Simulated assay, not measured.
Amino acid sequence: MNGDTVFIKGLKTEGVIGVFDWEREIRQPLYIDVTMATDIRLAAASDDLTHTLDYKAITDRITQFVAASAFQLIETLAERLAELLQKEFAVQWLQLAIHKPGAIAAASDIGIQIERGEKP
């Protein structure tokens, strides 16, 4: 069994997210963490980016997806984003967290974390 992962932490994005009328009219900052299972051995042996998960391409796609979305719930955003990453980047397993700081005045952060797929 292989336990290799590629991770991205604290990716700052902005999108329309929320259930209140005022939230539907502004873009809010969201921070995304994602850990994705992969086997890095071929990439390490070949020193070839095409043999691993391209975190630049993944971060660009996440940023684009969030910017174009307008979900009410971060739960929906998390689910759709996980589906996109699994489909477009052939990720078998991932853990995804979305942080929405400022959503609750008394809390420094709120968010959701999900895990999808079978961990190798």
Rank of each mutant, 00 (worst) to 15 (best):
M36E: 06
S108D: 12
E25Q: 15
E14V: 02
T13H: 01
I8K: 03
E79K: 13
T52S: 10
K87R: 15
V91A: 06
F65C: 04
V34G: 03
G10S: 07
V66C: 06
L94T: 06
A103F: 02
F65K: 09
A43E: 02
T13A: 11
T5Q: 12
F7N: 07
N2I: 10
V19N: 07
I32N: 06
G102C: 07
L85W: 06
L96Y: 07
T59A: 15
K100A: 07
A106N: 08
F65A: 04
L85M: 12
A45W: 00
E75R: 12
I8A: 06
R61A: 15
T52E: 01
F89Q: 11
D47S: 11
D21I: 01
A57R: 15
T50G: 00
E79I: 09
V91L: 04
A82W: 01
I98K: 08
L53C: 03
L11I: 02
A97L: 02
F20I: 05
L53E: 01
A97H: 10
W22E: 10
E115Q: 15
D60Y: 04
V19A: 14
W93N: 10
I32Y: 03
I74L: 10
A105K: 12
K56F: 08
E79W: 01
I62C: 03
D47N: 15
L30D: 00
D47I: 02
T76I: 12
L49C: 01
R80Y: 04
L81P: 09
I110T: 15
S108R: 12
N2F: 13
R41Y: 09
